[in-house]
Design a protein around this nucleic acid. Structure first.
Lengths: 118, 118
DNA sequence: CACCTTCTGCAACGTTTGGTTGCACATCAA
DNA sequence: TTGATGTGCAACCAAACGTTGCAGAAGGTG
């Protein structure tokens, strides 16, 4: 697994995505406060927070008995950039295929064997 | 798990992402041909192809003893759109936070309690 | 102080998922 | 027919996501 994949798989989990959404919209949150707005237990949320913290997407500040988590904006921006990169790569591939398909459509003299070898 | 999450988690796996890359760049491929270019066994690739097929990202056509897989462009485009959506949502959140931070910086008369409620 | 509530952390457990090995079956070519 | 190659199925292993249960630390109130 490459280094970049860590950010991906951190963001790949739907629960973690929703946690990031919540943290972004509310500024901060604890494992308990987040679990109240999610369909999973506090312990599950705590584990996810550990994962997010390990890849640097959130940071914790302990205040009394509470542990407040906050999103690391720079790291999230990096994750967003990676999403955009992959999306753009696939997009350009798709566009290229589309162009080739149109070319084949236009020059349709012989058929069937066009995509056998590259 | 929401319906949309299926596409996400299909694309969330690093091996599956590389498989999509390979299929896009080579047009098509079998479990065997893909496994030769990946650090996993043929059976692992076959399972991933099952997952990708279940969410409609690839389709198979059997020819003799070979089973060729191809990317479904429309579905992949949909996945790319989802990536872009989430990225854009987070991006706008980050920008908004940035603006608020700047506002606080400018009007720094009282301190500390500014982000308590929105 | 003692008592109770609340927030956290740790451990055990179950299920799903990504990966492996091993084997049986089908297909093509000599 | 024989041998190579491609596929499918089953058992197994490890990691990840989720659960329950319990112990401990921090706050509030009599």
């Amino acid at each position: 697994m490459r280094v970049d994949d860590e950010l991906w798989s951190a963001v790949g989990d739907p629960t973690r995505r929703r946690m990031l959404d919540l943290l972004l919209s509310e500024g901060s949150g604890t494992a308990t406060s987040l679990s109240e707005q999610l369909p999973v237990t506090r312990q599950a949320v705590a584990k996810h927070l550990l994962v997010l913290d390990r890849v640097g997407l959130v940071h914790a500040t302990t205040a009394g008995r509470e542990k407040q988590f906050r999103v690391d904006q720079a790291q999230l921006a990096r994750a967003v950039a990676q999403l955009a990169d992959v999306g753009a790569a696939w997009d350009s591939r798709l566009q290229r295929i589309k162009r080739i398909a149109e070319t084949i459509q236009r020059g349709k003299d012989q058929d069937g064997e066009s995509e056998k070898k590259q």
